[in-house]
Design a protein around this nucleic acid. Sequence first.
DNA 1: ATGGTCGGCAACCGA
Length: 271
Amino acid sequence: MPLKIATWNINSVRLRIDLVAKFIKSARPDVLCLQETKCPDDAFPLKRFKRLGYEHVALNGQKGYHGVAIVSRVPFERSSAENFCGKTDCRHISVVLGERAGLREEITLHDFYVPAGGDEPDPEVNPKFQHKLDFLDEMRAHAGLRPADKARAILVGDLNVAPLEHDVWSHKQMLKVVSHTPIECEKLDRARDSGRWIDMMRVLTPEPAKLYTWWSYRAADWRAADRGRRLDHVWTSGALAGQVSKITVAKDYRGAERPSDHVPVMATLEV
DNA sequence: ATGGTCGGCAACCGA
């Protein structure tokens, strides 16, 4: 059976709830992972999601900043939220899909929002960049992010790093720009390799094809300039990799009225 | 080389 899992940095779920509804109705994901919900759990628009058919929700939100959520048409077995870098800043949540979702074998799903890291790419003077590097190191070292050989797992979200040359509009001009500096790209690679995760977006769309999921709000004409970055990712364990039939980047949503600066990415799994 | 725009929430912080 096909299982569709989408990820989207929504940059305020309450402000953009109508846009989320439009995406849900059109793309029909089974599970939607959100980042930057900017919404305390008691203010999350549960009723709206319920009306749309997404009755199962796992939340890790707070007032004003960051926040992640997983909303689903199929029930979870369990969920958990973890803290990184000794902070309670709501950057991770995970669920397990299993029997109740009609699966014979469980799938663990992680939803991440890695710190953006500020503007200055020097950890000595910019604590936000240091935090980002520490966060990536902690992901690498995390035992819970190393799926066993046969385990089916998927990790999605806004990882705030565009690691490959063709994940940015200009590799050369981006080398000193936070999101594409060598040190953070290397740390992201190590986090991925340490868990033996596979970068499924690049399996299905290999370089040198350009692949972006984010376009700055600051561009006068984001579409014409097309100075995008691939900040959002879909990683799977080896056991799940062969079952990903398709990943789509819904670029049109960047052109919506009052858009997020990120667009939805949706993976279809044959499970 | 520089500054450009958002959202939350009520002055700036974070992105």
